[in-house]
């Protein structure tokens, strides 16, 4: 008796059914994630382009209080709500029984982790490149008056909190969904994610230093060297990538072996 007669389906159909269950990368989610981040930061950037040199040069001007400080306060409120909302959701929907997660589910969750790492990477691209050097360019043509400048509002109070939300969300996702992370911590992941968080005290030191003993804004000046911790900590992303590749490779192998049976 043939296989088709026993199961009612052809081997090709059985295989197609198994393939349909196997999770892969959801490319539309990747595209949407990128589009949303690009759209939000792009809108912020267009606003800065239009308003920074016209109504953003002096904190003590009434225009600054109309066009820039409401944006600052809105960012603080939205950032706070997003932080607690995202992490609260991840905690409330956590996996209660990590031992029962099947290899297929775990593989799907690792693709979810990749999406979180991708979000973190895109926001880091915004912060580490565009937002930081917009501040460098700004300081070369204007004199600092207070800690609140248009580029600081974009960098320290928008891009940096967004990166911290992505970093903590990534950590929470791994901790609450991935069985290997349920009862222990991956050191390279902790080091990599500590960079964005520990940059906050550096921002404090930077503003304090610029206020009291170093008014210039040469970006290579010693007062800025503490910021380098963010970039250097991200060298540990190599360890996270090695972990993801090793675990996902192992899960893919398990699923392939399962499909052969």
């Amino acid at each position: 008796m043939s296989v088709e007669a026993l199961s009612g389906t052809t081997p090709a159909e059985q295989l197609a059914s198994k393939r349909a269950d196997v999770p892969g990368m959801n490319w539309s989610k990747v595209g949407w994630t990128f589009a949303i981040i690009a759209l939000v930061y792009g809108a912020h950037r267009v606003y800065m382009q239009q308003m920074a040199f016209t109504v953003g040069l002096d904190y003590f001007e009434p225009e600054f209080q109309i066009y820039w400080m409401p944006l600052f306060w809105a960012q603080v409120v939205v950032g706070g709500l997003a932080f607690f909302g995202v992490n609260g959701y991840l905690w409330m929907t956590r996996e209660k029984n990590p031992e029962a997660v099947t290899p297929r589910d775990e593989l799907g969750r690792y693709f979810g982790l990749l999406l979180w790492v991708f979000s973190f990477a895109v926001i880091l691209g915004v912060l580490g490149s565009f937002a930081t050097e917009s501040d460098a360019a700004w300081h070369q043509v204007t004199i600092r008056d207070t800690d609140f400048t248009p580029t600081h509002i974009g960098l320290f109070y928008f891009a940096l909190p967004a990166l911290i939300i992505a970093a903590v969300g990534l950590f929470m996702y791994a901790k609450t969904r991935l069985p290997q992370h349920a009862d222990k911590y991956l050191v390279p992941l902790g080091i990599a994610l500590s960079g964005p968080i520990l940059i906050l005290p550096t921002v404090g030191y930077n503003e304090w230093g610029h206020t009291f003993f170093y008014a210039e804004e040469l970006f290579g000046a010693p007062v800025h060297w503490g910021f380098a911790f963010l970039g250097l900590a991200l060298l540990a992303v190599g360890g996270v990538v090695v972990h993801i590749l090793a675990r996902m490779g192992s899960l893919i192998q398990e699923i392939q072996d399962e499909a052969k049976v």
Partner: peptide
């Protein structure tokens, strides 16, 4: 981004 940020500062 990480290298750009580190080198910028």
């Amino acid at each position: 981004a990480a290298s750009g940020f580190t080198l910028a500062v």
